[in-house]
């Protein structure tokens, strides 16, 4: 298994305003059996569109046999994820928050 690892950094807003632009950019980073590391340190704002975008990217990566890993979530990202009880890796946080 050829495990390719690529990195993408997201910056600024990750919202309905930017989703249309960011989505193709993230999809472009995906490839068969590749793991994409998505850095979230620079994200200053995230809404439902942003969350949906990250989930869609991860699903697509897995569909291609790879994965998407999220790291260095900024406070803004953590706060948004906390609302829906997801941790900074977008995994269910489990238990009450």
């Amino acid at each position: 298994m050829n495990h390719d690892t690529r990195a993408v950094e997201l910056r600024d807003e990750l919202t309905i305003q930017t989703a249309a632009v960011e989505f193709p950019r993230l999809l472009a980073a995906l490839d068969k059996n590749a793991t994409v590391r998505v850095g979230l340190a620079g994200v200053t704002e995230m809404d439902t569109a942003g969350l949906q975008l990250l989930l869609a990217v991860r699903r697509e990566a897995r569909r291609l046999g790879g994965d998407a890993e999220f790291h260095d979530a900024s406070d803004a990202v953590r706060a948004a994820l906390a609302i829906v009880h997801l941790d900074d890796k977008l995994r269910p946080a489990g238990g009450a928050g």
Binding site: A20, L51, Q52, R59, H85
Partner: peptide, 17 residues
């Protein structure tokens, strides 16, 4: 609270907005 993303279409069909 859980997020249900089962309705997400394939990436090519998905409108991010």
């Amino acid at each position: 609270i859980t997020v249900d993303d089962s309705a997400l279409p394939g990436a090519s069909d998905m409108d991010p907005e």
